[in-house]
Design a binder for these strands. Structure first.
Lengths: 127, 127
DNA sequence: CCAACCTTGACACGATCGTGTTAAGCTTTG
DNA sequence: CAAAGCTTAACACGATCGTGTCAAGGTTGG
């Protein structure tokens, strides 16, 4: 055997075997398998399991958050979209006439949006 | 009045007033208030509300994910920690003797970890 | 061969998310 | 001033997360 079995890994990392499977299902740590499908945890996996623990505890965040962060890290489009959203400043012009008011910033962003809006995402969800 | 009230904003963005408050409580969009505490949504907020919608729909993610992304964007420590965790490669050396095996990678990371571990975070949670 | 271990799948359950609704109390406005 | 609108707080409820446990079946090893 080239590494630890799931129960052994659970033992040394503090996670339950159930959670190791769950973590795998979340795409966070996917150990290789023997030809018959047994999971084998090597030093790398064990270490990542331990540090995962610390991450969650230290920053008080959820497994799903880390899963999302992974998506965020590997999905260029997602990252770009989020970045642009955060950049939309809470800017408050103040110097605009009351008529324009409703239009000016709105249109500015409308233009930005038009660039990446896959046609008809805002579909009226027709029942 | 310098902007839309919460009900008007709800009307034009498609969110319910309840959700506008919820989104605010999540720290995603916090409109300014009148001296008496009434929320006022300006063009910026309205736009962010609309694009938020598209974000969630387009990438099929949750509000809490975006909230976490915001933390991720503004918390340097969090970002660094996540980055390091993702970088821990699923590398499988293969060329290491069976005795070393358990130690080598482990210690490598232990060293890395030691650098940023605020003393005693792994407190034994003493009931 | 059979006991010990693994695998997947399911049910269960408390906690949190996302959302609506309602109540009690101010504020703005016709 | 009274109606309409805002605010917070609370209750409710289905959906999902995180987790345990149990069942049915394949694998491994003494």
């Amino acid at each position: 055997m080239e590494g630890l079995t799931i129960n052994e890994a659970a033992e040394t990392t503090g996670w339950s075997p159930r959670m190791l499977r769950y973590i795998e299902s979340a795409g966070l740590i996917e150990p290789p398998r023997t030809p018959k499908g047994y999971r084998i945890y090597g030093p790398g996996e064990l270490q990542r399991l331990r540090t995962l623990r610390q991450l969650l505890a230290r920053f008080d965040c959820a497994l799903s958050d880390v899963a999302f962060a992974k998506r965020h890290a590997s999905d260029q489009d997602l990252r770009a979209a989020l970045e642009r959203w955060f950049e939309e400043r809470p800017e408050r012009p103040e110097g605009v006439a009351s008529g324009d008011w409703l239009s000016w910033e709105q249109q500015k962003h409308q233009r930005l949006l038009a660039m990446d809006t896959p046609p008809r995402l805002t579909e009226p969800t027709p029942a």
